[in-house]
Structures are given as structure tokens and as C-alpha cells.
Nucleic acid binder design. Structure first.
Length: 195
DNA sequence: CGACCGATTGACT
DNA sequence: GTCAATCGGTCGG
């Protein structure tokens, strides 16, 4: 299997967001491989979007968002959580797509260990149904900020194809500004989608 | 420098 | 349903 090419990421965030549904996120930690199918995302559109970290221009924190597409932007929030974004668009644009939820595929036992879950068989939907949960399960922290998705630590592969009719759209979650914009996309009926 | 608040979660009433 | 946890970015003085 092969990484998605740079050209997948250098398009506008809204297009990349919809195309990310059904793709497989892969994370390698030493010899361990974790993977999952993306089922929920949100687009954050640079300087034009009041909810985006890039809205107030380039800073040390959001620098990564201004790279060309295909890098990981990880930020720390609420004093205890990390969220992972896929940087999109061309250099200096400042767009990204937040990975909000995914369906675990490989390495479920390791994800449970990372999340502090008991060693039971199978996965429960609370394992990865939220942006900070995905990061915790996949071991994505501050040092993963800036990871090149064309490398072999964190990357994406083509996965299931999602038909247009099974993609749901809504306003974004957990923000106060730009709430009305329909920039959240999810796979309808998938139990891993966050509530 | 101090106050305020956030792309969240989990525990508790 | 409500609320604390906990810290770094941002803005006002």
C-alpha cells in the first residue's frame, strides 16, 4: 500500500475534507502499526475563517498550517488535549482539516492501552469518537506536529470508497465563531462518529 | 503582567 | 444536564 500523493493535499480544505472520509490513517510506533478509517472531519479555512487558528495571521503556534498540504498540524488545547489536523492547500495559505473521529482497524489493543481502557476483546465506539481521543489512541502529541504525511511515521492510504449520498454535512462542533458554516463532514450512520 | 477562554473529555447531579 | 481539569495563546492595561 502506498501513501496518498502530495497533490491530494494541496487542494482547498473543503475538497480534501470530503475526500478524507473513508481514507485510512496509519501510525507507526516502533514495530507497532495502528490504523483506522476516517469517518468524521472538519475544514478550517485559513484567514477567511474566524474559527481557524490561522485567522489572525501566522504565529509560532500555527506556522504549520501555512505550509503546503500534506503535513500534520497538532495543537494542544484545554490544558490537556491534543488535536490532529491535515494541512491542505498550497504554501502560505493556512488551511487544515481536523480529524474528529475514525473507526479502528489495526492495533486496537494498543489503542486501548494508550487510552487507558481495560483489556477486553474488540473495540468500543468511545475509543476514537472525538479529536482528542483519536490523538490519545494513536499516540499523537506535540512532537508529531509537522510530521510529513509522505513519510512513514504518520500517513494516509486510500481505503473504502464512500458514496456521495452517505456523506452527512453539518455545522462544526465546539466552536463559537463561524458556527453556522457547514464544514463538518461525516459518514452517515457510522457508530464511530462523535455525538 | 493579569484576565479570559478555547477545534475537549469524563465524572458527576 | 452541569462542571472541573489545566495550560498556553491572545488581548488589554
Amino acid at each position: 500500500m502506498k501513501n496518498l500523493p502530495r497533490s491530494f493535499y494541496t487542494r482547498p480544505a473543503l475538497l480534501v475534507a470530503k475526500d478524507l472520509l473513508g481514507k485510512t490513517l496509519v501510525r507507526k510506533i516502533g514495530r507497532v502499526t495502528l490504523s483506522g478509517t476516517i469517518v468524521e472531519v472538519e475544514a478550517y479555512c485559513g484567514a477567511k475563517d474566524p474559527a481557524s487558528h490561522a485567522y489572525r495571521g501566522r504565529t509560532k503556534r500555527n506556522e504549520m498550517m501555512f505550509r503546503e498540504g500534506g503535513y500534520l498540524y497538532v495543537y494542544f488545547t484545554y490544558g490537556m488535549h491534543f488535536c490532529a489536523n491535515v494541512v491542505t492547500g498550497k504554501n502560505n495559505v493556512g488551511e487544515a482539516v481536523l480529524i474528529r473521529a475514525l473507526e479502528p482497524v489495526c492495533g486496537i489493543e494498543v489503542m486501548k492501552k494508550n487510552r487507558g481502557f481495560a483489556k477486553t476483546v474488540g473495540a468500543t465506539h468511545t475509543l476514537t469518537n472525538g479529536p482528542a481521543k483519536v490523538c490519545q489512541a494513536f499516540g499523537i502529541e506535540r512532537k508529531e506536529n509537522g510530521t510529513d504525511l509522505l513519510g512513514n511515521k504518520v500517513y494516509l492510504m486510500a481505503g473504502e470508497s464512500i458514496t456521495k449520498s452517505s456523506i452527512g454535512t453539518s455545522g462544526r462542533i465546539g466552536i463559537s465563531r463561524g458556527k453556522e458554516k457547514k464544514r463538518r463532514f461525516f459518514v452517515k450512520g457510522n457508530k464511530w462518529v462523535s455525538g
